[in-house]
Write a protein that binds this DNA or RNA. Structure first.
Length: 648
RNA sequence: GGGCUCGUAGUCUAGGCUGGAUUAGGACACUGGCCUGCGGAGCCGGAGAUCGAGGGUUCAAAUCCCUCCGGGCCCGCCA
């Protein structure tokens, strides 16, 4: 509103003075310092460039010609600096308006609805069901879920999907190991159990395979290949020793059973093939193993308040013929051809033909690599199946956001190009790859650089461990600070503090940045953290509780302190921040906003009394301000999935 | 070799799309105060940065363009 008022009056004055100049942008921005008012325009610099006059002279001229009789929220305007025009707010009116608006809309305040609501699918997490979710993958569900919350609050209809990648050799590896053990019931969290079986089985199988290769290489006496195999073998042997030590019984059992097998490699492939061709026994086995793992995922995710609306099995797209249909269509396009028994999609060619490079953000010199759709044995590849899945998603939604690591950039690009090849331009244009960078483990003393997480080698920290540790540390903290609380109460608080801290740490960093995992990063309970915001919220609640009265007759014109006005401004900015964060898919902007507001509030809290302020009209106005802060902090926290507690 | 991405104090990070009053904003660690009223998971202050390097565009560059350097990832009949 204030923005509009400034814009209108400025435009009018501009028309009056310089009817011939046309400026699309008035470049109104928030100045860096409150002394410069609350909104400023740098248009005089542009104007000066056009007609060669001095910017500050122009600014003075313009400011003089603004129609001041029409102002309601603008208090005064002045030209400043080298050529800025500064607009100053009339806080006497603005404060009341902002605070009352926040209190009126309450849980809806700030969540400005879009004028073009869409059906949006956010596909996130989609981890292979082979082992527990680990810290490297944890960025995905948190970002995905937060995006979903934001888009929903923006007025879209949002569906959260999990793509279950159950087709492929790796799934058969676990299924094989599980069957060898006699399909036991897990005696621990099911995904942790499956994770052990997966790592141990693939380790044993891998060593057997490498040994065989070694024999062959010896006969061929190719020293180079020999070295390479030896190196790989050494690595796996080290992994085996580690696993044997950590899970001795399970390792022994699996080792005994697999050693009896003449050709484990082949047995695994057989399971794989049987599953893809809908063999009843294979389905029973594989689905059971996958279900166990998914059950573990659900437990982990529900702890951090993340759920999915749909669990989509990759295999079902193969069985239902969706994949075959897509292939059929692709075959008739000029970009797909059979080369030496395989089906190849020339992604580069269609990009050239349709001139897609600028649209896809590619350099002219870049040639998109082609993609194999079907193997020589007739089976399909991952991206091929993803194409079928994507089309299915677009039957249910107008827009699809895939939260997937940036290591899959090329695959996601090829997927998009595939949609163009199918003539589904509108799908391609509404397919968003929300990419985030990898998380690595910190380097140990022995290593120079950070270690890559390897789930295949069992080298990871599980998401469960991270949450456990965070909650444990939070519990210590709570016990220190509020020793008088009951054990049960302390546990309850520790849970949302610990989980909140983890969630905040993952959402507050720009997803494009690579992250090295350290406990310090996640277990931060100080200023730039969820607990700090939660604490501030609890503080605000505490004041309101102590006051034990509603602000009956607030006089907002008494809020003349700089601190108070800064808070009012922050409250008023929340809707803009939310809209921008959502449109640009930047959850971190909300986290940043929340800390900023909490920060200002704590300063205010420290400097000015609320309940005992005099006169009562001021006390009431401050009470209403505290209430508005409480509301905005809670809304900001809730949209990024963090609990806003009344006490902690 | 090609592509994508990141590089901001000892450490972590904001700003970058949309250039502007910026002496680059915060946090951790370091350090000096506040134990004053409504919760100290707090508040106020100090010190610490040639924004990876070099060019260019501009009245104005952390921001836009080019080149280079360093880290990570991808370029598979894996997923």
């Amino acid at each position: 509103m204030f923005h509009q008022e400034c814009e209108n009056s400025l435009r009018k004055a501009l028309e009056k003075l310089y009817p011939e100049t046309q400026l699309a942008e008035l470049s109104l921005k928030k100045p860096p310092n409150p002394e410069f008012g609350q909104l400023a325009s740098s248009l005089c610099f542009d104007l000066a460039k056009k007609n060669g006059k001095n910017p500050i002279v122009l600014a003075k001229q313009l400011a003089k010609n603004l129609d001041k009789t029409r102002f309601s929220l603008v208090k005064h305007v002045d030209p400043a600096g080298a050529g800025y025009i500064n607009f100053h707010l009339d806080f006497a009116k603005f404060s009341g308006l902002t605070i009352e608006s926040a209190r009126h809309f309450d849980a809806e305040y700030g969540f400005v609805k879009t004028s073009t609501p869409m059906r949006i699918i956010v596909e996130h997490t989609s981890a292979n069901p082979l082992h527990p979710l680990h810290i490297g993958q944890a960025r995905n569900p948190v970002l995905g879920d937060t995006l979903a919350r934001m888009l929903k609050s923006r007025g879209h209809t949002v569906f959260r999907h999990f793509y279950i990648d159950d087709v492929g050799r790796q799934s058969s590896v676990v299924a094989y190991g599980y069957a060898k053990l006699g399909k036991p019931e897990p005696d621990e969290k099911p995904d942790h159990f499956i994770g052990k079986i997966y790592t141990i089985t693939s380790c044993i199988v891998e060593i057997a395979r490498l040994k065989k290769e070694l024999e062959q290489a010896k006969q061929a006496s190719s020293t180079e290949a020999l070295q390479k195999i030896n190196k790989e073998l050494d690595e796996w042997v080290a992994v085996a020793a580690d696993l044997q030590q950590r899970f001795s019984e399970l390792f022994r059992k699996l080792h005994d059973e697999i050693s009896k097998e003449e050709n484990p490699e082949r047995a695994i492939n057989l399971i794989n093939q049987a599953y893809e061709t809908q063999d009843k026994k294979a389905i029973e086995l594989s689905r059971h193993v996958t279900d166990l793992c998914l059950e573990g995922f659900k437990q982990t995710l529900s702890r951090i308040d993340i759920t999915h609306d749909s669990w989509d099995w990759e295999s079902s797209f193969v069985w239902s013929g969706h994949v075959a249909d897509v292939l059929q269509k692709l075959k008739s396009s000029p970009y797909v051809s059979k080369i030496g028994g395989i089906l190849e999609f020339e992604a580069g060619k269609i990009v050239e033909d349709l001139g897609l490079k600028p649209k896809l953000g590619l350099r002219e010199s870049y040639e998109v690599p082609s993609l194999t759709l079907v193997r020589s044995d007739g089976t399909t590849l991952y991206t091929t199946r993803d194409l079928a899945y994507t089309l299915w998603k677009f039957e249910k939604a107008d827009r699809v956001i895939n939260v997937i690591g940036m290591e899959q950039n090329l695959a996601q690009l090829q997927l998009k190009i595939g949609l163009y090849a199918l003539g589904r331009r509108e799908c391609a244009e509404n397919l968003v790859h929300f990419a985030y960078n990898l998380v690595s483990l910190p380097s140990s003393k022995a290593q120079v650089r950070s270690e890559r997480i390897s789930s295949r080698m069992g080298r990871y920290i599980t998401f469960d461990e991270v949450m456990d540790e965070a909650v444990r540390r939070a519990f210590e903290e709570v016990s220190k600070r509020s020793a008088e609380l009951s054990e049960k109460e302390k546990k309850r608080i520790a849970e949302f503090v610990g989980i909140g801290a983890v969630r905040y740490a993952l959402v507050a960093v720009d997803p494009q940045k690579p992250v090295v995992f350290t406990w310090d990063r996640v277990l931060d309970f100080e200023k730039n953290s969820a607990p700090y915001i939660q604490y501030t919220h609890a503080r605000a609640c505490s004041i309101l509780r102590k006051a034990a009265r509603a602000p009956e007759k607030p006089d907002y014109s008494l809020l003349t302190e700089k601190l108070e006005q800064e808070i009012v401004l922050a409250l008023a900015e929340f809707p803009d921040t939310f809209v921008e964060a959502t449109e640009f898919l930047k959850p971190s902007a909300i986290a940043e906003f929340a800390v900023l507001l909490a920060d200002k509030f704590n300063t205010f809290y420290n400097a000015l009394p609320v309940i005992k302020a005099e006169p009562p009209q001021l006390s009431d106005a401050r009470l209403a301000l505290v209430d508005a802060v409480r509301i905005v902090l809670r809304n900001a926290l809730s949209v990024i999935g963090i609990v806003a507690p009344e006490r902690m």
